[in-house]
Amino acid sequence: MFQLSIVTPEKVIFDGEVVSLLVPGMEGYLGILSNHAPLITALQPGRIEFQDDQDKIQVFSVSGGFVEVSGNKATLLADTAEHCEEIDIDRAQTALQRALKALQDKDKAGEVCGPEEKEAAKRAANRVRIYKETH
């Protein structure tokens, strides 16, 4: 087991011992078990999954951030993170629709879509997907 803390700018989401951790790294999902080699990676929008000390699997959605692993301790700095039970599905759906519409409008107008719009769509789609996977 190893120590995991998940913090966002707004609050500490989780702090405790876990058995395993799965995070969406920039280069793809990676699993972390105890005594992992020191590692720092950026995250992309995706699913955080860990097995807590009661062997329960907990799923969170994350919209980006960083993970540092060193000395049997993992620190996850998330931009935003929500437990799968706490995702506001209506809000996520409307955000996704809005983001997709913005992308389409720009496409029609012949403009190049900036990374911001694409990121927003990705984040919203991620929330919706994780909600659907866990409900």
Partner: peptide, 17 residues
């Protein structure tokens, strides 16, 4: 100075951090 694994590279992590 421990040997960290950086994914993808220290520079790009800086860029986003």
């Amino acid at each position: 100075r421990s040997q960290y694994i950086f994914e993808p590279t220290p520079e790009s992590i800086y860029e986003s951090l």
